[in-house]
């Protein structure tokens, strides 16, 4: 099985995001960067699938040279090789999907796994755009029934199930009010939800090995993709702060406030 997985570079989800006073963007100083957590789940799932069915995990990232850090991280986790689309200017989800389409056409994977969204833009679009552009099936928000404490999880069993004829995958999707199971003919696009798996840590030997794994460099021009964005971010602002609340001493005081002041009970 050949699996292509995305590895977007994003701000560490634990870092404090502040908007610049002029609203032109966020304050970059002091921020740490990581692989998008949903993409990291995708890398993990790819590695589990390949461990079970053999094959190769190819990881792809789009951005300036700094995204090589995220590619090396995925390689240290165990991915086999990387594709770096070198692009430093702005790009939107349509542009990302168009670039990925070209990478897919070049690599011909059986499965593309992406995070359901990246934790910076929170758009939740690229996987679906890509599936549509390719004319492939899609299974978004991939999840599983078993918990993160289960035996399946401890034994790193892939949650995406290859059917007996090896021509399709079954995917459990996390949707409103329950779990939906779909079967997608390969090749297909899967996007990951939070509880698909718990990504592994990169081991020290993994980190050492990653240093010599190949990273192929491409550019939008080489891929013949125009990435002029169709989404303009005009202004960013901090969300309105809630007014400071109060501490109440005991339950009767709380109920009194809820009943007489907030009038919600």
């Amino acid at each position: 099985m050949k699996i292509l997985v995305t590895a977007k570079r994003v701000e560490d989800p634990e870092s404090k995001i502040k908007v610049k006073p002029d609203g032109s963007g966020i304050v970059q100083e002091g921020l740490k960067y990581k692989i998008n957590p949903f993409d990291e789940i995708g890398v993990e799932e790819g590695l589990r699938l390949v461990a079970k069915h053999q094959g190769e995990v190819v990881v792809v990232s789009i951005g300036g040279k700094e995204v090589q850090e995220q590619l090396r991280h995925a390689l240290a986790m165990g991915a086999h090789r990387a594709v770096w689309v070198n692009h430093t200017g702005p790009v939107d989800q349509l542009g990302i999907a168009a670039l990925l389409q070209k990478v897919v056409e070049k690599e011909q994977p059986d499965l593309v796994i992406l995070g359901k969204q990246s934790i910076d833009d929170d758009q939740n679009q690229v996987g679906q755009y890509l599936a549509e552009f390719l004319g492939w099936g899609q299974a978004t928000f991939a999840s599983k029934v078993e918990s993160m404490e289960s035996e399946q999880e401890k034994n790193k069993v892939p949650a995406i199930v290859l059917t007996a004829d090896k021509k399709s995958v079954q995917v459990i999707r996390e949707v409103d009010n329950g779990l939906a199971t779909v079967e997608c003919q390969l090749p297909a696009v899967v996007t990951t939800d939070l509880r698909l798996n718990q990504p592994r840590y990169a081991s020290l030997p993994g980190i050492m090995k990653a240093k010599s794994k190949p990273i192929e460099e491409l550019t939008p021009a080489k891929l013949s993709v125009d990435v002029t964005p169709a989404i303009q971010v005009l202004k960013m602002s901090a969300p309105p702060a809630r007014k400071a609340g109060i501490k109440v001493a005991d339950v009767p005081a709380l109920v009194e406030k809820l009943h007489n002041e907030a009038k919600v009970v």
């Binding site: 701000e11 989800p13 995001i17 908007v19 966020i26 349509l94 934790i119 910076d120 833009d121 929170d122 169709a230 989404i231 303009q232 971010v233 005009l234 202004k235 960013m236 602002s237 901090a238 969300p239």
Partner: peptide, 20 residues
């Protein structure tokens, strides 16, 4: 017309314009 939408887990509100 522009749209306000959350980014970075709701830590930023962005006003965006779609040009397609």
């Amino acid at each position: 017309i522009t749209f306000t939408r959350p980014m970075w887990a709701g830590n930023v509100f962005a006003d965006v314009k779609l040009t397609t």
